[in-house]
Write a protein that binds this DNA or RNA. Structure first.
Length: 744
DNA sequence: CTTGCAACACTTTTT
DNA sequence: GTGTTGCAAG
């Protein structure tokens, strides 16, 4: 028995030390799946069955990839640089960079993100004179992506004479033509193009089939058609390869069908991969018996499962607490108060998460946590690389990297403004369309025709000269140096430096953060090219900054929570229409997926689980009355304990919503359904009215720190407060946005 | 050509 | 509540 597998149970051991063969591991939540994966890799390397160079591991996120590599290296005590590990997208990107010619791509091809894709489709719709109402860009977008996820090119779709389909096919075709002109590939393309390249080029295919004889796929339940085909092709069973595949997943945790994932693949694996050994991991090492019982009870309401029931040797633990709040604010206050309680009684390193169905729900929770000075960190939402100023900066870098990148060109041609307006741009677009060339090339050719006004010509020349000289200089520089030069010379950073607004200051900081990112991307590494940095910026989905304050609460969507675990979990917004989401309620299959999402949420909790639902909630600016989620009713009564709503109506109205102890006195009964009508009016915000401040008052701001109120003006909605912060100049802040915490 | 404001639509999840 | 678009004035 190998020593790296000593702490594993019998089933896990079996998976880790199995002889080389295809394997399907059905791993329930918290069953030590990652441990098995990591140990399996370490085991095959250690026993010299496989060299790291011959291993390909696919993970769901780049973060998971980094962690897995780290843990394997920890066990082996030496680096394993030769192993390929990453997401399908990043691995395909690597292959395409290597074989761009075989894949029929320009050397500097660029990745189109979702946003770029939407913009491009809108432009194509406009060019085709399609009515925006009848043809929303999203419709074409999902048509294109769905087909690509199935490996279908525009020429392979059969319209069957349906005029709607024919229009969509034309959009797809025009879209593809534009991508080819600007040398870009979208997310789905990364995989589809790699697949088609490998399928048609036997030399390269055999190279990789030979190289990777140990393939490993995590989160197998979320794999889509083209990824499955890709894997089959690479494993090469049809061509007599002796590669083996280890697929690890949990059909009950499949939550990405909207992205083309099909659970069917986990079901058909053993048919498609010969002599598959199937191993089930059902012993759970994470949660209490009560939490597992609830999870099992909920998921049992789904049909078409492989079937699996989690169990633990641990104790039952506390019941699942259910809290029916008056509204969304009340829900957040409840959570904040429970977090405070928990922090008083438990060890400081215990992890806490607040989970929600959609990102919009985080706002109020953040607000209340701020007011209670509870540190938190939000995952997802607006990524660092999605911020406008960062996208502008990346736009310049993209254009320098590949002048034919139309999306980048459109983004930055007049940012900062340089006198190139709609008129001029329209002429260039028209030329580019007619000549079927990139905007960049069109610009050069239009300039040669000398048909533009003198003014436009001067501006355009300035622009092309700028990009050309940047391109030239960037060739001899590393990524960080090139980025610095680009930011300075483009005038982008000066645009915000000159701007005196607070928001502009933050933008300068973000741009500097981008330079830091470029710096740490690596300078000596031959792989640290501008093109690779740009790809990284698109494929990396990690949170804004790794704010590693130890005791911060994690806020994230249920999707983002997959794979994580916490001592204390708050599952929020369990209301019909929100969770399950109303978009999913039309089709039973989609409700089943929502239920799996709920299962994922419940199984994140180690010790204690709170589930909250609000009787009313403000959504999209309107208040709506909410009824409890069906999933709530699926949790057996003997496992749950309802927490009585302690809010006392008269007190409530008076109290600031930052106060947290309005819950400790639990004497009031929950409002009956009839009392839903008259709402207790919660104060919107205590300190939005500057007149509630006083001169000399000490306040705390999330970003600027401690300060003193030195002036104020205006009324409740438009008021401003002037504050002198420690070590900084006095600042005027909008009372309604400053989120000031009084220290007096 | 740029700026500022008002009206407007859009809100599921993400590689 | 938020972000984008369209329009009129500078």
């Amino acid at each position: 028995m190998n020593d790296c597998a000593t702490r594993l149970n019998e089933r896990q051991q079996e998976a880790v030390t199995a002889k080389a063969q295809n394997m399907l591991v059905i791993a329930g939540a918290g069953s030590g799946k990652t441990n098995v994966l990591v140990n399996r890799i370490a085991y095959v390397i250690k026993t010299h069955d496989v060299s790291p160079n011959n291993i390909l591991a696919v993970t769901f996120t780049n973060k998971a990839a980094a962690e897995m590599r780290h843990r394997v290296e920890e066990i082996l005590n030496h680096p394993i640089t030769g192993m390929w590990i990453g997401t399908f997208h990043s691995l395909c990107h690597r292959i395409l960079r290597q074989h761009y010619e075989a894949a029929n791509l320009p050397k500097q091809f660029q990745i189109l993100d979702q946003d770029d894709q939407t913009k491009l489709i809108k432009k194509i719709h406009a060019a085709m004179n399609l009515d925006e109402e009848r043809w929303p860009a999203k419709k074409s977008q999902s048509f294109i992506n769905k087909n690509k996820d199935n490996g279908i090119t525009c020429d392979q779709i059969k319209s069957k004479g349906n005029p709607n389909t024919e229009t969509l096919i034309t959009v797809y075709r025009n879209y593809q033509a534009q991508c080819s002109i600007s040398g870009s590939v979208d997310f789905a393309d990364l995989i589809m193009r790699t697949y088609h390249m490998l399928a048609s080029n036997s030399e390269i295919r055999h190279h990789y089939q030979h190289k990777f004889n140990f393939l490993l796929v995590d989160e197998f339940q979320d794999i889509n058609n083209i990824q499955y085909m890709w894997l089959k092709l690479l494993a090469g069973a049809d061509e007599g390869s002796n590669s083996t595949v280890m697929a690890v997943g949990d059909d009950d945790q499949s939550i990405y069908s909207w992205r083309g994932a099909e659970i069917a693949h986990i079901m058909s694996f053993s048919k498609d991969f010969p002599n598959t050994k199937t191993i089930r991991l059902e012993q759970n090492y994470r949660s209490t018996g009560t939490i597992l019982a609830a999870a099992n009870a909920v998921i049992e309401n789904n049909n078409d499962r492989l079937g699996k029931s989690l169990w633990t040797e641990g104790n039952e633990g506390s019941p699942i607490y259910i809290y029916n709040s008056i509204n969304d604010i009340d829900e957040a206050i409840f959570i904040a108060s429970k977090i405070k309680e928990w922090k008083l009684e438990s060890s400081s390193n215990s992890k806490i998460a607040i989970l929600y169905r959609s990102n919009a729900q985080s706002r109020i929770i953040e607000d209340v946590l701020n007011r209670n000075q509870i540190p938190y960190r939000v995952y997802g939402g607006l990524r660092f690389f999605d911020r406008a100023e960062i996208k502008d900066a990346l736009g310049y870098m993209k254009l320098v990297n590949n002048t034919h990148d139309n999306a980048a060109y459109e983004r930055i041609i007049n940012q900062p403004t340089r006198g190139i307006g709609r008129q001029t741009l329209e002429q260039i677009r028209a030329y580019a369309n007619a000549a079927e060339v990139s905007l960049w090339q069109a610009t050069e050719e239009v300039l040669d025709t000398e048909e533009l006004t003198a003014r436009a010509t001067t501006s355009l020349r300035k622009f092309t000269d700028l990009i050309t000289s940047l391109k030239h200089e960037a060739e001899t520089l590393n990524v960080a140096e090139a980025a610095t030069l680009i930011l300075e010379q483009s005038g982008l950073i000066d645009l915000y430096r000159k701007d005196k607004k607070d928001t502009a200051q933050a933008k300068v900081e973000n741009l500097q953060e981008l330079l830091n990112a470029a710096e740490s991307f690596g300078n000596n590494d031959a792989e640290a090219t501008l093109a690779n940095f740009l790809a990284y910026s698109i494929l990396d989905t990690s949170a804004t900054k790794e704010d590693q304050s130890e005791n911060a609460i994690d806020l994230m969507t249920l999707h983002a929570a997959k794979g994580l675990e916490y001592n204390l979990v708050f599952l929020t917004g369990l209301e019909e229409g929100l969770f399950p989401h109303k978009m999913a309620m039309i089709e039973p299959n989609n409700v089943a997926e929502e239920r799996r999402l709920c299962y994922v949420g419940i199984t994140r909790a180690r010790e204690k689980l709170f589930i909250t639902h609000a009787s009313s909630r403000r959504m999209h600016g309107k208040t709506s009355f909410q009824s409890p989620s069906r999933f709530l009713h699926e949790i057996p009564a003997n496992l749950r304990q309802d927490i009585v709503n302690a809010a006392q109506a008269p007190r409530y109205a008076r109290e600031s919503y930052g106060s947290s102890n309005s819950f400790s006195s639990g004497s009031m009964s929950r409002p009956t359904s009839s009392s839903i009508g008259p709402k207790y009016k919660l104060p919107k915000e205590t300190n939005t009215n500057p007149n509630s401040y006083f001169l000399g008052q000490r306040v705390m701001h999330a970003k600027f720190g401690e300060g003193v109120v030195i002036n104020y003006e205006g009324d409740t909605s438009t008021g401003r407060v002037q504050i002198k912060f420690k070590g900084q100049d006095a600042k005027w802040l909008l009372a309604s946005y400053a989120k000031l915490q009084s220290l007096d």
